[in-house]
Structures are given as structure tokens and as C-alpha cells.
Design a protein around this nucleic acid. Structure first.
Ligand code: FES
Ligand code: FES
Lengths: 141, 141
DNA sequence: TATATACTTGACTAAATTAGTCAGGTTTAT
DNA sequence: ATAAACCTGACTAATTTAGTCAAGTATATA
């Protein structure tokens, strides 16, 4: 059970972006340098974030990205969803009435993993980008 | 973020085993047939469970496996740990004072992922094998 | 208007991980 | 003796991850 670097980087980059957001667009190059993430990889990630309307792009010199909404309105769920970092604890399709391996009934652990999935998603629903920015600025005071 | 089938099968197999445990040793062949898990794969899994003293083996004809402790005393944590299904949300080494990619400070998301890891592990600490067996027998009443 | 900065897109790939299989044992009840 | 069942280690195909690479387009500014 591990987090992939795509999800990790997406959040990291957005926290970085959110801290500088009110001034000017933030270029991926800056984020790349500050956070030590490959520029090419960041481009892939931001392309997805843009499609899900979490960020907006500003092209040309002095361009970059800005948040599409207020940091308080962007939940961790939204970010992870945008980059396809899904929580998948069930083996079966949740909606289907069939079990794990195409069997006719749900397996002995189905309910357990379903509960776990909810438990994790609750965590992601509660955390906003704003919370994360604050977590990191408080320490500097 | 997904669960591997090794972890999934380990729990599934142990719930199956626990249900028949009081009578005789349960053979992997039976578990394999009932749960639809490859016998060879089960053997790998039970070898690990045995090394961590979650099950005991009984060799020879009519042999099989029995639980080493009471189902109430076996937590999900113990099972997942035994088969190396670890929760890993942090990129850095938790103990180290260095950050993600060997940097000198912890990254912007370190605390977040640390919190998440605890959140998930709490879930695993609370659930015992006994809970899972009961979840599945209640329904039959 | 030339140029440098920065976003945009899509294809490609090396490395790691997963989810098993396979072959050859050993032990023991009947 | 034999069959059931555990035991061990090596091997592999498929998938996923974590990027790289190449070839653009848009725009501020000197
Ligand atoms: S996880 Fe849904 S049936 Fe097994
Ligand atoms: S996760 Fe620990 S420093 Fe980034």
C-alpha cells in the first residue's frame, strides 16, 4: 500500500504554488527548482490539474500557473483524483454484484476493504490545500 | 494507492481458516478451493505467516494449519506486517532527519503523509481477525 | 520583430513491482 | 507403500511507475 510519486508531487507542487499564488503566476521551472521535481514530469502533472480545473495556465514570458479556486476550496480528494491517484482497496468492482474473481458472491473481506477505503477517503475529504499551506507557515513564526 | 493481492489473500485466507479452526487443521488445498486462490501462492503466504507465528503447521496427511493465538489477539496489523504489506506514504525514511530526495529539510508534505500513515495504521490496529469472522457469520443468522 | 520564457502534447522507455508458476523436495497418517 | 499435505527457492510474464525526449505553440519585452 503505497502512495505513488505522481500523487505526492502533485500535492507538493500545489502547496508550493499556493504559497506564492497571490502575487504572480508561478512557473513550473521555479517549482521544479524549489521542490526538486523534474520539469518534464511536472508538466504532465499540471496538464492533468488544468484539465480538472484546479489550476489555470498563463502562457508566455512571465507566465506560469495560478489556482483556479481558493485554496480552502481545493480538497486533497480533488488533487489526487485529478492525477489518477486513486485509493483502491477492493479487488472487485464496487458497483457490480459479483465478487472478487467474478464469483457470484462478495468475498469474506469485501466489507473490510470497503470500510478501509472510506476511512482513507474521509481523510482526503477533510484536508484542504489551505490547511497544508498553513501547516507549513506556522512553523516559520 | 492500492492494496496488493498478497495482503488481500493473506487476510482472506486467515478469515477462512479461523472459521474452521476449532475442529481440525485446515489444509491450504481447502482454502484454495473455497477462496479461489492459487495453492502455490498460498504456500508462499503461509510460509510468512508461520515465520511470524500467526499460524502453526501440522505436517503429513490430515495436516494443515491452525492459528497460533486466539483470533481476538491477531490484529490486521500483524497479518499485513507478516506478508510485508506495508503502508508507505512517506518517501523519506521516517527516522532520518533528511527530506525526500536526500535534501536537508523535510518536504512540504511530510507531515501530511505522516498523519495519513497513522490514520491508516490506526484502522489496522483496531481490527482483529475475530472481528472479521464475526462480520461474516452475523450475516448468516 | 527577434528572442527567450514558459506552457502543450504525445510518444517512448528503463526499472521496479506484482502476481503468480514450477520443480523439487520432506513429513506423517493410514 | 502411498497419498496428502507442508516446505523451499528459483523463475517469469505482465503491469505499473517514474520518468525522459522531441517537437511544438503562445506571448511579454527589449
Ligand atoms: S473485494 Fe469485493 S468481493 Fe472481494
Ligand atoms: S515525505 Fe518526508 S521529506 Fe518528503
Amino acid at each position: 500500500m503505497k502512495l505513488t510519486s505522481k500523487g505526492r508531487y502533485a500535492v507538493m507542487a500545489l502547496v508550493d504554488l499556493a504559497r506564492f499564488n497571490n502575487l504572480n503566476p508561478v512557473s513550473l521551472r521555479d517549482i521544479s527548482l524549489r521542490q526538486g521535481i523534474s520539469l518534464d514530469y511536472l508538466e504532465q502533472i499540471f496538464s492533468k490539474l488544468r484539465k480538472k480545473e484546479i489550476v489555470q495556465s498563463v502562457r508566455g514570458t512571465q507566465g506560469g500557473y495560478v489556482l483556479s479556486k481558493k485554496a480552502k476550496e481545493i480538497k486533497l480528494t480533488n488533487i489526487l483524483d485529478a492525477v489518477d491517484e486513486k485509493v483502491k482497496t477492493l479487488q472487485c468492482k464496487k458497483e457490480s454484484k459479483k465478487g472478487c474473481n467474478g464469483r457470484s458472491t462478495k468475498c469474506l473481506t469485501h466489507n473490510l476493504w470497503d470500510e478501509l477505503e472510506n476511512h482513507i477517503n474521509n481523510f482526503f475529504e477533510k484536508k484542504s490545500l489551505d490547511d497544508l499551506v498553513k501547516d507549513n507557515t506556522e512553523k516559520r513564526v
